[in-house]
Amino acid sequence: MNHSVQHSRLIQIMVLSALMAFTSLSTDIYLPAMPFMQLDLQGNIELTITSFLIGFAIAQLVWGPISDQIGRKKPLFIGMILFVIGSVGCALSETIYQIIFWRVIQAIGACTGPMLARAIIRDLYDRVEATQMLSTLTIIMAVAPIAGPLIGGQILKFTSWHAMFWLLAMIGLVMFFCLFLLPETRKKSDLKITIKQAFSNYKYLFKKWIFIRYVLALTAFYVAAYTFIIGSPFVYISYYHIEPQHYGWLFSINIIGLMLMSFINKKLVKHVHLHVLLKYSSMLAMLAMMTLVILFFSHFMSLITLVVLLFVFFSMNGVIAATSTAAALDSVPEIAGSASALMGAMQYGSGIISSILLTLWRTDSAESMIVIMAIFTVLSALISMLPHHEK
């Protein structure tokens, strides 16, 4: 591989990583501010995450088929513009209803990033290379959920939460210009299908068990992951009385585990089948959460045991997300855009389930977060252990 090709690939990796990181950055940056935003806006602040995830999930189902029909880059450019507009709207919001509305607009734009980054990877690489590439992107994009809460916590020391959304608007503007560095990966010969035909792909995908089983395993795991993301600020800050600026460090520990497992997974996929990796990583996550449930209800759980076992759980995301995504998209390479959209809609839409369950089951301890996480981690593992049949 010559120098110019290596340089071009490095640029692609950096831009795709940034696109993949859009979701986590858009939410994680204001996690430390959630208790304060709730007081300021006089409303249930979890709804700002719910509304974002609803917009994020539904919009992908529209953008996916469109990208299969008109290409990957045009939807990305439109998405970045909408993200910037939504971020500015959030920064200027004075009521809970205003910020909920602008979070939906922000999400409609943000969802094009990770969804089309996955589709571009499937356009360019085969099954094993795609998994390695996704693992590489996961390692790089993990900077966002580490940096997000840390930056948010520091911003709170000097100014208000509004500044966090001004920062997101600036990042979106920079990303708009970075998109010019990406090639159009959708072949012209593949652009002959109509939008109507593209949307009919969803019916086909729901009937294709090899595809949908990977999607369901990932979705169940992400219900658990979003339960942690949404519930942890209140558990750590309100229940354990951790300072908001220090919450970011506790959150970051989990992302370091994710990065480590993504690096290991990149090596393992050369020698171990994707389905086997998915099964054992899901089982390990289940074991961690079942242990946490036992410790909690036997009153042996401390902040340290909570942090350690959540670290094990979250680390498995580095294997589960990459292997399930690559295996699912590999089963339907001819409609990767629509498949990535459906997968993304269910993956990130899972956070809607998390926020609703946490809202309905409010406790003054970690009980609701731990139990919901355990239930869906077990479900994910059970789906992953179902018999595997090659296409």
Results as ranks from 00 to 15, higher is better:
M175N: 02
H275A: 13
I229T: 01
A198Q: 12
L386C: 11
H7M: 15
D40E: 11
G318Q: 06
I155Q: 02
M286H: 08
P244I: 08
T194L: 12
I120C: 01
N2A: 15
F52C: 05
L216N: 12
H241N: 13
F296C: 02
I230K: 00
A119E: 01
A57Q: 08
M1D: 13
I70S: 08
G89D: 00
L134I: 11
S384P: 04
T138M: 14
I11D: 06
L278K: 13
L134E: 01
M170T: 13
H246L: 01
L156C: 08
M316H: 05
V223P: 02
G64K: 04
R186L: 11
F263C: 13
I372S: 03
W102I: 02
L342P: 00
F101T: 12
P244D: 09
T136H: 04
G337N: 08
L358H: 10
P65E: 07
F52W: 05
G344R: 08
S324M: 10
M1T: 14
E243M: 09
L116V: 15
M141Y: 13
T159R: 10
M283P: 00
S324F: 07
A119Y: 02
F297R: 10
R186A: 09
F296P: 03
R186S: 05
F180V: 08
Q38P: 02
I212N: 14
V84Q: 08
F313N: 05
G71M: 12
L156V: 08
A217T: 06
D40P: 03
S298F: 07
A107R: 03
K196C: 09
P145D: 10
F228A: 04
S380M: 08
L182N: 03
D190R: 10
E243W: 02
L386I: 05
S365E: 13
V319R: 03
M316C: 15
